[in-house]
Design a protein around this nucleic acid. Structure first.
Length: 803
RNA sequence: GCGCCCGUGGCGGAAUUGGCAGACGCGCUAGACUUAGGAUCUAGUGUCAACGACGUGGGAGUUCAAGUCUCUUCGGGCGCACCA
């Protein structure tokens, strides 16, 4: 009766597949549970041990929900458009479609070998024409509603991928994907107006149950701030410069202005500016700096005064100089600021460097000539005319009222979030279904002509200047305008990888529908996703983008809820044995195939969950894997200890109920490591006794089933239980029976442990105190001293304070 | 620089509301068995000058009682990074 996991795991994987055990039901009268994990990008490297950490966790929850009577949808698919495949295609001159198919086959084999309870009948692939037809459909809807627009603008250009990047894809000034240098390049790009949804993307976070860290990151990324726009007149010129400030209260302390080097006012005033050569040189210098250099330069401020120009402070009429500096960004606010060096550290640095005046307007801090006073929660306004004496909070309110009454400015909310750069000059992505007609402008490809499929090419590399590979497909490009019938050209840009993943969870619901992205009936039943787990790295990319698309689909009536995901959790990273990030170059990569072959899928799954706290990074340990394998084998070897007795034996009844409670609760809290520890302890108890009743064994393997499904099913069958384990119900526990009749109480004297006493569990505070004081241990401790106080905590301890 | 999280044995990590620190696993030690193995079972395993004392990065504080709360400091991680 050796534990032959190869045989057992194959047997049950085949059984589940043949019988479609985990197929979601179309019975919409049942309560539903939509469990979702991020679908993988099928790279050539195969599955990483990090993928199964997320998948096993949600698989455990999906299996538990089925046992609790839910109709569960737990699907899987492939996010298969993307650069690595395309780069491989370019290098080896193989069609990306072919590479994608091979990679998917490998991923699928690996996932199946681990025994996840995916409903494979719902499998999707973002590169399927019948899938991206609907990605294109959503894009056309966005275009129709004015949320997609083309604009010439400076974009983040990855010099290595030769592709434009969204702001979200630039990390520390380098490409998020390849680490290549990112420079600014002017290009005409398709943009999506995610900014129009900024406020709703913040507000509706209140309605969902994401872990707090994710909510915070989303809020920070959207970056809402409240303040005011203020117009500064220019002396002797009929022109105004508008600034945005979150601190209108400090307006009396504005001693100069700064506009960004790209600000249009500079060109408009070029005949008034007396040092235009110097200014132009600075503009040129700023334009040549890459994003990386601009952030590197953060320490030392540079700038040039616009000589011949003076602005007028609207509240006190003072004339103040105007400067240009690249610390002011054209992409935020109005591209111009009022500088208050006394209460802003950046302005302070600039003022000190260029000898500009510093006027204190909020009192109560240190000398503003020495340091900017920015934390003004306690401050009171000084030198500020009608604001003097007010708190900062009241001063902000009063100043906004004043500005609005006098037509000098108004209250304004700003966001850091920028519109989403949606064009990629690449082959392996969804073609943007638009046509350029010289007469009609941008015309959408008619819905009935979707999908607009990729043209067949034999070379996939982008042009040196970054033009799309599609630009070479002349037969494909030249077409007729759907509107006027005249000659027209297709858009050659494709969509970014985030397009397909922004709505994939909707397609799972109805993957073969050719009339709609999914039927309304099915969408209404299954949405929203009940529990979504994935990596932290997708918080400001995928999660934000997909929430935006979902809200748009809500607005046009496709879906009925405001938010796609009710709950979002995140797993920690699995590191190499040396505590470093797993990577080929570090030589510390663990291949899931090797673990499954040597120890089996059940051991692999158990270890993935036992490795450490689910949300924290933890190093891999082969000895840890062996420990879990030993546990699985110990469960197997309980078989000869099985008795014919029914029910729980008297001495283990409490422990059985406690274990059911612990595993049930810990699973819901994603404390998988402690749930497994509880099962290990239970098995240890069975070994100590040398026997286990049928019902005790049954409870154990039901609890173990979500974590280690193959061995559990096998043991269920071998023990002669009726039916199949996957049809069994999740065990219940009796709260009363989890409580012991008597408990051991710790006796403390002045906080030090001096003894222990077993007392009845149900006992009042007073009784407990008395009982302990009257006990031998208590008496001994008190002897010869005065009792000052007795603190009794039922079920825990009694602390006697003596003198 | 700002914001958030984390510092617990030789290691991974436990510890609802402040209430026996170190569950569970690894490793280590000893024993049993034996077809001699990376097998299995049993027992032990925080530290020390050891019937006691000390112990959750360091220092202070609140409390009858602190890993848990407060302040401070050091170390590590993540996020944002000139966002006005």
């Amino acid at each position: 009766m050796d534990y032959n996991f190869h045989e057992i795991e194959k047997k049950w994987q085949d059984y589940w597949e043949e019988n479609e055990t985990y197929k979601a039901s179309d019975d919409f009268s049942k309560k539903k549970f939509y469990a979702l994990v991020e679908f993988p990008y099928p790279s050539g490297h195969g599955l990483h041990v990090g993928h199964p950490r997320s998948y096993t966790a949600i698989d455990i929850l999906a299996r538990k929900r089925r046992m609790e009577g839910y109709n569960v949808l737990f699907p899987m698919g492939w996010d298969a458009f993307g650069l690595p495949t395309e780069n491989y295609a370019i290098k080896h001159n193989i069609h990306p479609k072919k590479i994608t198919a091979e990679n998917i086959a490998n991923f699928k084999r690996q996932l199946k070998s681990i025994g996840f309870s995916f409903d494979w009948s719902k499998e999707i692939n973002t590169t399927d024409e019948n899938y991206y037809k609907w990605t294109q459909w959503i894009f056309l809807k966005l275009f129709e509603k004015g949320l997609a627009y083309k604009q010439e603008m400076p974009i983040n250009w990855c010099t290595s991928c030769k592709v434009g990047l969204a702001n979200e894809e630039v990390v520390n000034g380098v490409c998020e994907r390849c680490g290549g240098e990112v420079v600014q390049k002017r290009k005409s790009q398709w943009m999506l107006k995610i900014t129009e949804y900024a406020q709703r993307l913040i507000d509706d976070l209140d309605e969902v149950n994401y872990i707090e860290k994710i909510k915070t990151q989303q809020r920070n990324w959207i970056g809402r701030s409240e303040g005011a726009e203020v117009d500064f007149a220019l002396a002797g010129v009929d022109k105004k410069i508008r600034v945005y400030t979150t601190r209108p209260d400090t307006l009396f302390g504005a001693t100069y202005m700064v506009v960004s080097p790209e600000h249009p006012v500079i060109a408009e005033l070029s005949d008034k500016i007396t040092n235009m050569d110097e200014v132009a040189a600075y503009q040129k210098e700023a334009a040549h700096k890459s994003e990386f250099e601009r952030t590197e330069m953060a320490k030392d401020k540079t700038g040039v005064e616009l000589k011949g120009i003076k602005a007028v402070n609207p509240v006190n009429g003072t004339e103040i100089p105007v400067w240009i500096s690249d610390y002011v960004l054209m992409t935020y606010g109005t591209g111009a600021i009022m500088a208050v060096p006394a209460h802003d550290s950046r302005d302070w640095d600039f003022a000190k460097k260029f000898g500009l005046p510093i006027i204190e307007v909020v009192g109560g801090g240190k000398d503003v000539q020495e340091e900017a006073y920015t934390d003004v929660s306690e401050g009171v306004m000084v030198n500020s005319g009608f604001l003097t004496g007010l708190s900062v909070k009241d001063a902000i309110k009063k100043m906004i009222e004043y500005l609005e009454e006098n037509g000098l400015g108004k209250k304004k909310v700003n966001f850091k979030l920028r519109d989403w750069v949606f064009s990629r000059q690449r082959y392996w992505g969804e073609p943007i279904p638009l046509v350029w007609c010289d007469k009609c402008g941008w015309v959408p490809v008619p819905y009935e002509e979707l999908p607009l499929t990729l043209p067949e090419l034999d070379k996939f590399a982008p042009g040196e200047e970054g033009e799309s590979p599609l630009a070479k497909a002349t037969d494909w490009i030249n077409t007729k305008c759907p509107h006027c019938g005249g000659p027209a050209k297709r858009e050659t840009d494709t969509m970014p990888q985030w397009a397909g993943s922004s709505w994939y969870f909707l397609r799972y619901i109805d993957p073969n529908n050719d009339k709609a992205l999914a039927s309304t009936e099915k969408l209404d039943y299954w949405m929203p996703v009940d529990w979504y787990n994935g990596g932290m790295e997708h918080t400001t990319l995928h999660v934000l983008y997909s929430r935006f698309w979902y809200k748009f689909l809500y607005d046009i009536g496709v879906v009925k809820t405001k938010e796609p995901y009710m709950k979002r959790t995140s797993q920690g990273m699995i590191l190499g044995e040396n505590n470093e990030k797993m990577s080929k170059s570090r030589g510390n990569v663990v291949n899931p195939d090797d673990v499954v072959n040597e120890f089996g899928a059940d051991t692999f799954r158990t270890y993935e969950m036992f490795i450490g706290a689910f949300d924290q990074a933890t190093p891999w340990s082969e000895n840890g894997v062996r420990g879990c394998h030993k546990f699985i084998e110990r469960v197997w070897n309980l078989q000869p200890m099985l008795t014919d007795e029914d029910g729980y034996s008297k001495d283990l009844e409490g422990l059985m109920h406690k274990t059911v409670k612990k595993v049930t609760e810990d699973t819901e809290r994603m404390k998988f490591n402690t749930a497994i520890a509880a099962m290990m302890s239970l098995v240890n108890e069975f070994y100590k006794k040398g026997k286990v009743t049928k019902d005790e064994f049954k409870t154990l393997i039901v609890l173990l089933y979500p974590t280690a499904p193959h061995i559990s099913e096998e043991l269920w069958q071998r023990a002669g239980m009726t039916g199949y384990l996957h049809d069994a119900a999740w065990p219940t526990y009796d709260e009363e029976k989890t409580k012991d009749d008597s408990v051991e109480i710790v006796i403390q004297i002045n906080g030090k442990i001096r003894g222990k006493l077993v007392v009845p569990a149900e006992i009042s505070r007073d009784e407990l105190g008395k009982l302990v004081c009257d006990s031998e241990e208590g008496k001994a401790a008190i002897a010869g001293k005065t009792v000052v106080k007795v603190i009794a905590v039922p079920g825990k301890l009694v602390n006697i304070v003596v003198k």
